[in-house]
Amino acid sequence: MTTPEFSTALERLLLEDGPYLSCEECFERLDVYVESRLAGGPAQPDLEAHLRACPACAEDVASLTALLRDPPQG
């Protein structure tokens, strides 16, 4: 039986978050990862699994990506 596909607390509890990777390590790799992805670099499955599981880290990546695409003037 597969997990029903609707967004609920149940789905969040069962979310596949990959091999353990800490928020600290995610932060350490953030800048290199975003630059690489913007340049068409390869996926990083362990980091991306963490991002699916951690909304705060996912926001950091999304925000940095947006910032690099449209840098602030100054």
Partner: peptide, 22 residues
Amino acid sequence: GHSRFTTWAYKFALLQAASDVR
């Protein structure tokens, strides 16, 4: 130096600002 310094620096500000807003 694996990324641009500005990219590396940005993430500190983004993390802190996001946390402060939350």
